[in-house]
Amino acid sequence: MIVRCAVTDVIQMSSSVYRVLLKPEVNIVFKAGQYLKVHFNSKSYAFSIASSPLDQDLIELHIRKNEGIGDSCIVGCFQQALNENILVDVPHGDAWLREDSDRPILLMAGGTGVSYVSGILKKCISSKMVQPIYLYWGVKNIELLYVHKELIDLVATHDNVYYVSAAEYMDDVHHLVKKGTVLDVILNDFNNLSQFDIYMCGPVPMIKAAKVLLGNYRNANLERMFSDALAYV
């Protein structure tokens, strides 16, 4: 479905990540965990939807500054389109939230993959899902945890939701951030994932490693692991 959307805001969240807000002309029907495509300079780019399907007023995206188009960049394209309309192709993706499942949920994100798991988490909360929900987010360094406080505040009022962050490089010990890759931290924190629904978004090598390590060493059920990148690994 091609939808006309107004670019209402482009907000810098960190040194390299921006939050982009789009206002669609009509209500968009999508599932938590799906993504959309935008077209700039005759090229198509896919972005996870960070907002819940219940938030029809605005669509939220997280964009890395270094995703470039020649000498320009996607962030620059959105900035140039501020207060103007762009065309969005939505929805796409099969790694959407299985709301009919009562299995515990593990959400794993690397970098801006947190936009994907954020959309799922918001839908879980708004739908009052009661099973344990664990969100694990990993980055290279602690400065890249650009929605860290938002996630802490979001889970604080929900007893069944847990948030763990990880940074590969830290100079000092941080009581709210674990050191290491997000996959290493998950392997350390869980002994058996056989009963979990697992949703993942991040670099393809991370997804490939998670498929192997969580399946072989933590008994994760491959049929209950969801990521659009799994089609390529």
Rank of each mutant, 00 (worst) to 15 (best):
Y163S: 05
L54D: 07
S72I: 13
I59P: 00
L135H: 08
G180N: 06
G76L: 11
F30L: 14
L121N: 01
D153Q: 09
I11F: 10
D184L: 10
K211T: 04
F40C: 04
T112D: 07
W96M: 12
D55S: 10
N191M: 02
Q131W: 02
G119L: 13
L222G: 02
K178Q: 05
Q12H: 04
D94F: 15
R224L: 06
E99T: 14
N191W: 10
I198Y: 05
A32G: 09
G202S: 08
T181I: 07
G215I: 05
I142M: 04
M225D: 04
V26G: 06
L222A: 10
A229F: 06
Y35H: 09
V20H: 09
F47N: 02
I125F: 09
S72W: 15
S51V: 00
K123Q: 13
S118L: 15
V117A: 03
S127G: 05
G111K: 00
S51H: 00
A167D: 04
F30Y: 08
Q80Y: 08
A109I: 14
G202N: 04
I74P: 08
N160R: 01
V26W: 08
L151D: 03
D100V: 07
I69Y: 02
G93D: 12
H158W: 01
T157A: 10
Y18C: 02
